[in-house]
Write a protein that binds this DNA or RNA. Structure first.
Lengths: 187, 187
DNA sequence: GTACAATATATCAGGTCTTATATAGACAAC
DNA sequence: GTTGTCTATATAAGACCTGATATATTGTAC
């Protein structure tokens, strides 16, 4: 289970609450793995049962108590073990390509609209990766001083950018090909 | 729910059993959407309840009866509606990048091993897309005569290829960068 | 001729993830 | 002044998906 190991990873930097962890997810690995609080909380509880984490309650008066999670020795070992484990390729899940696959019955203009919309979404995402997302990463390296770690954080962002560039190129080529087609349902 | 619409898509070509549908999935959209039989069967049942499909049992003596599913008018309408619906970008889920992200604590050689392994997997997959997968697609177009549909089937395969090429480039660049690093745990 | 894989069909248990809901203070908008 | 949104914390219901299991025939390997 990858979520478990992502949580171990962040908790190997410092003890945190589920809410803190969610913020780290959103800030740093959101471009290749997301998680909801409603998924993080029960997973943390399970990890305590498994001995990977310990939990301490910090009382607060004005809002719900903070449950601070700390990684155990067993947790660190498990993280190290998993980091060395060879993983297969993760299957893709792209609903948009289902629309394309069965798009034979749509008119040419409708298909073009779909593709142009998708192109715009990927352009936006690419711009975010190259701008604000890269910037947050840089700030995190500066704030923590984790130079070596930061190098690998950057690598994952490079992967996201490479991916987006691939999608952009594909969208552009697909649009060209469809524009070159005859009108209506034939070519 | 995308699975539902993928099933509607295939059933818009011809009536089929769950088992048949699984074969189509594996043959044609496997590179961007997969589904198990254990997921397909209950989904088909639900779709009958929703009025999107009808089911007829064909008795067989030597093996379990065939349950043949046929798309209804309502089902066709729902498919057409969905094909025109703008979709957001699907979030990526790449466990391998979690390993990279938290890989700062691994030795250089261990990281290189991870990346080279991953590179080989993507090379394999790219070769499959360019060879056998493309060939099966061509045969399906020939067998069905669905020229226009085949064009869109091909587009989805192009997307898969583009994606794989992006990954290959990323892996190669990452390997170069890490090789250029000093030994041990620094810089 | 016996073991193993593939074809053909399907269910069930359980794990993962999403969506909706709950509480409560602070702060901004209008 | 009240509506909305943000910070901060968490649970519950249910949808979605994976992995294991079941059965019976046909074909392949040794």
């Amino acid at each position: 289970m990858s979520l478990k190991h992502a949580l171990l990873g962040f908790l190997s930097y410092a003890p945190m609450t589920g809410y803190d962890l969610k913020r780290y997810f959103d800030q740093s690995i959101h471009h290749f793995w997301n998680a909801n609080l409603s998924q993080i909380y029960p997973t943390l509880s399970r990890m305590v049962e498994e001995g990977l984490l310990t939990m301490e309650v910090e009382h607060q008066e004005d809002r719900p108590n903070r449950k601070v999670y700390t990684i155990t020795g067993v947790g660190r070992e498990e993280l190290q073990r998993w980091l060395r484990e060879p993983l297969g390729l993760s299957p893709l899940r792209v609903p948009f390509l289902i629309q394309i696959f069965f798009g034979g019955s749509l008119e040419k203009e409708e298909m073009l609209a779909r593709l142009r919309h998708h192109l715009a979404l990927h352009q936006e995402r690419l711009a975010a990766y190259q701008g604000p997302v890269r910037e947050v990463l840089r700030q995190n390296v500066e704030a923590t001083g984790l130079e070596r770690e930061g190098f690998f954080w950057g690598l994952t962002l490079d992967a996201g950018i490479q991916c987006e560039e691939g999608w952009l190129k594909w969208c552009e080529e697909a649009i060209e090909k469809i524009e070159a087609m005859g009108d209506g349902h034939d070519e």
